[in-house]
Amino acid sequence: MVEGKSWRNRMFDGVNYVILTLIAFLCLVPIIHVLAVSLSSRAPAMGGFVTFWPIGFTWENYIKVVESVAFYRAFLVSVERTLLGTLINLLIIVLTAYPFSRSPHEFKGRTFLLYVFMFAMLFNGGLIPTFLNVRNLGLIDTLWALVLPGAVQIWSIFLLMNFFRGIPKEIEESAIIDGASHWQLLYHIYLPLSTPVLATLCLFAAVGHWNAWFDGVIYMTKMDNVPLQTFLRTIVIQLDMTRMNLDPKDLVLVSNRSVRAAQIFVTMLPILVVYPFLQRYFVTGIRLGAVKG
């Protein structure tokens, strides 16, 4: 666009940049502060002297976190649930989206089944019946309790279904004439054409699993089985040592502010690492799905 170089225009741009820079700074301040505290030694952190730069720089806090068996165990649970959970999510999304993307003529009962899925998105049994159901199934204190109740991501299914339907039919026509089955169409034509969407859905599912904590609160009775976010919650929000397995070495995880900061940072690190990839894909995802909560 042709923009005049008048002082008013420059003023406008200048003010705009300054305000946006301040807002961006406001977004990062808490994260930078946590990082600075986590790299500071105990006394200045506890005394509240650290702002954006570590005082008495040390890796000691991270070493304490890494050496803690309890933290390591929770980290492992989170890794397991993220890998297994994302795999199941994606499998269900692909397998369900494909039949739904076919015409009702090819897939009789499509409309009915679509409403069955749609209704489950709009209405739920509520917290207590859901909890009792998982308990009655004997899933308490197993990894399955973190992975199966949310296995069917209805919104993502609809999103991929809409994408599949947007692929021109001419592409599959010759394959159908050659006698390709639905499995072959899905595997050889639809999946290769939708890798960016699949990447988006995969990353969203993975981030969702990594960040989930409430299922760990209600479905896990032993601290040993809890995922990292739930573990972190006991430490930085409940400040509760009684639920720890009373390993005296682990008390420092709760009582020491800079060790707490180190745990917060380690817990968000995987998100920060995949963030550049998320960046690349999520705008595609959002554009496809218009709005996702």
Binding site: L91, F117, T130, N133, V134, L137, L148, A151, I157
Partner: peptide
């Protein structure tokens, strides 16, 4: 293809209803 998702939906969404 629809079956796995449908079964999980019935167990974890509809049975709680």
């Amino acid at each position: 293809m629809v079956l796995p998702g449908l079964v999980l939906l019935l167990i974890f969404n509809y049975y709680p209803m």
